[in-house]
Design a protein around this nucleic acid. Structure first.
Lengths: 237, 237
DNA sequence: GCTAAATTATGACAAAAGTCATATTTGAAA
DNA sequence: TTTCAAATATGACTTTTGTCATAATTTAGC
């Protein structure tokens, strides 16, 4: 899994740390993490961990993009969450002492650090503010998950599609041209995010293109009319 | 909100404490909780807290049944979670320092205790094992929420309906006759749990009755054929 | 550049689920 | 009990969404 030739970063000067749950860690604690962590890079499509395996620690994303997905009926994938720079992945199962309930796969060239389980639990023991960071992270994830439940249960596919596109813009931002989504997902992946069939996804994207809300650059999606998408997504605030 | 005539229970001898996140609390900490808590009972249909309000603490359920629900499009309710004896409600928003993202309503005569925010945060500061209890609770809620996402996105309504009925049996159990669901929900409430229209819920319940999977005692639902429901729900393990 | 495989696109159709109208039943209050 | 509003039930119909077949396009590998 870990390759010898990987560059080992330094936590103290890690840029993504300030955006993460480790932002308030004391220098001496940081030292412990630094000595025990392990850095690694993933190519697009490479899996970080798989549903059913046992976690031995958690992963901090330095750069890149990760999707968290679960296997559903008849091998159909469902994307439940995304992660980017500063996010922590694979921590839910580790904290609960369970097997992974979902898998994580890189959507891009991604750099991550692995921090062993015992280091994290020692930190929780010692540093209450770190516990609170974890609690806030879980709370935030839970809030978003419950929002997804609401939308999947009540919004029609067209609304969810518009919403998902805007979410991807929000989450991963746009390329330097100011319109192209930074994250590159296949139509099938978008379908598993929105919770619909691939053909329906293709049709809706074409429809949005016809309505001049989007345009395509090859497979890449460009957001042309954000207010228009907001309207379709039925988001007012 | 709080009524003077409510009986104030004693945390030390509280039966539901052993099932809760407070099971490992030290006696002196328990004393602090006991002195600051506030007990209250709710009648069926009474709201414990409402979406958008600010939390001042959390609620422990002593007995009874609570639904956690959100308002969706056009005033349509969505049930996202349930709570019973030993469960804690209203903690997510409090821990995250946010407004409530959902409301809580009693489904029965329910007895709860309120514990103020500052007491909880002091406990997190002092007792790492309590933090871990909260972390595990959030993790468990998150796991279930992500499972709901998967099912809402991929399972057809009929499967979700069978699954929800089995979930209600699991969650709140059966009456002494061994078949009647202890929790009494209207068809409309079941619809908001399953994520479908009320008419569809009524039709599916009738279908299940015809197939001798269920029977009705007035409005109450009786589970006749659990294996049959498991089959429809497409649950194998 | 060329080919094969994967992805995207589109049409025709089927199935699932929602909506609206209208009975019928139930249960709580007078 | 009686009455009435709310909840449940059912039919007819529409809309949404999914499925299958097949075509066109893109991409990756040689």
């Amino acid at each position: 899994m870990a390759k010898k030739e990987e560059i080992q970063h330094d936590c103290e000067h890690c840029k993504s740390r300030y955006k993460s749950i480790f932002c308030q860690i004391a220098p001496e604690e940081l030292q412990v993490i630094n000595e025990n962590k392990w850095c690694q890079t993933l190519e697009k499509g490479q899996q970080l961990f798989a549903e059913g395996a046992y976690p031995h620690g958690l992963f901090c994303v330095n750069s890149g993009k990760i999707k968290i997905h679960q296997m559903g009926e008849e091998g159909r994938e469902q994307i439940v969450r995304f992660a980017k720079e500063g996010d922590v992945v694979g921590y839910r199962a580790m904290l609960a002492g369970e097997k992974y309930s979902s898998s994580a796969t890189a959507l891009d060239h991604t750099s991550i650090c692995f921090i062993p389980k015992n280091v994290i639990f020692a930190l929780i023991e010692k540093d209450a503010s770190f516990s609170i960071q974890i609690i806030k992270l879980l709370s935030s994830n839970l809030k978003h998950a419950e929002e997804s439940i609401l939308h999947l249960a009540q919004k029609p596919v067209r609304e969810r599609m518009a919403e998902s596109l805007l979410f991807l813009k929000e989450m991963y931002g746009l390329e330097s041209d100011g319109i192209t989504l930074s994250v590159s997902l296949s139509r099938e992946e978008i379908a598993t995010l929105v919770g619909t069939a691939t053909e329906t996804t293709i049709r809706l994207l074409s429809e949005f293109k016809t309505k001049k809300l989007l345009s395509f650059d090859g497979r890449k999606i460009q957001i042309i009319d954000t207010p228009g998408l907001l309207k379709i997504a039925n988001i007012h605030d």
